[in-house]
Design a protein around this nucleic acid. Structure first.
Lengths: 147, 147
DNA sequence: TTTTCATGTAACTTCGTTTATTACGAATTG
DNA sequence: CAATTCGTAATAAACGAAGTTACATGAAAA
């Protein structure tokens, strides 16, 4: 099954934007995340609507972060992306007239909802600042290792 | 995103099989789960390889359960189906050379693995017998309501 | 033993979704 | 005004899952 990797992509883009002073173009982002500039604009457009980034046209244009890294959680980004379906597994149909199916769905739904709740909780505990800090740590560690 | 509903389908089929004495044909199962007999055979074939069901050819042929309902967990069925991908969301690539991506992936992976572990634990706690009992309860309740 | 029923399986087709691409418009800078 | 960059609609391509066809195999019954 093909996975939706936009959350991962968007995080990658945001951290790169956080690392640099000026704006970054869709083309640069597309190159760094191996996709197409239009796809970048589409996805980042959602973040712009949520006020997380700003975009500017024309020369010296591009994308900038406009939110405080410490206040943006991964859960918030997930929601901003339209809360895409989390599970690749699910029930066959949602309106079962069959009692057997009702039993099956009830059992599966409960398990999946628990797991989803845990996932969203965890994503809600991680901010962009946390990821940036983790990156700095890795960066420093690599410089240590190479020296 | 399209979801894999085979676990749900298989449970539905198994409970129907548990409710009846004789074997049930692929055609009957296909009708009751709105799919094609060949699809049923493909899926049930995996359960047969795992020893959970038996199939017989020819007249009076079809499918029967050959395992104790109390010992088969939903987790086991999930595994029997080839442990299909659970999440519809995931990382962009799995071999990141980019440190930013490493940070992103590490954070996401941990959250997803926790949720997956919880889901598998829950699925491991539910047996076919549990579902059959739940079905009986619903069945009795409906007869109550109708009388 | 022949007929019928039912599974076993490979090959192919269809379908739906996602992503990529093209094309053109709008805005901004110098 | 020329160059740059985003905005967005429309279309194409890619992909995987499911459905379908076709034919073979085996078992029971007439």
């Amino acid at each position: 099954m093909k996975r939706d990797s936009r959350l991962s992509s968007v995080l990658h883009a945001l951290l790169h934007m956080a690392e640099r002073d000026g704006p970054i173009t869709s083309e640069e982002l597309a190159a760094c995340m191996h996709t197409h500039p239009v796809v970048v604009r589409r996805t980042m457009g959602l973040l712009r609507e949520a006020g997380l980034v700003r975009s500017a046209r024309g020369p010296q244009g591009g994308w900038r972060i406009s939110a405080d890294l410490g206040t943006v959680t991964l859960r918030q980004l997930h929601e901003t992306l339209g809360e895409p379906t989390i599970f690749a597994i699910g029930n066959r149909q949602d309106m079962p007239g069959c009692l057997v199916e009702q039993s099956v769905n009830a059992a599966l739904d409960e398990a999946f909802m628990e797991a989803e709740a845990l996932l969203l909780t965890r994503l809600g505990e991680i901010t962009l600042a946390d990821l940036a800090a983790d990156f700095s740590r890795r960066y420093a560690a690599r410089r240590e290792g190479n020296s």
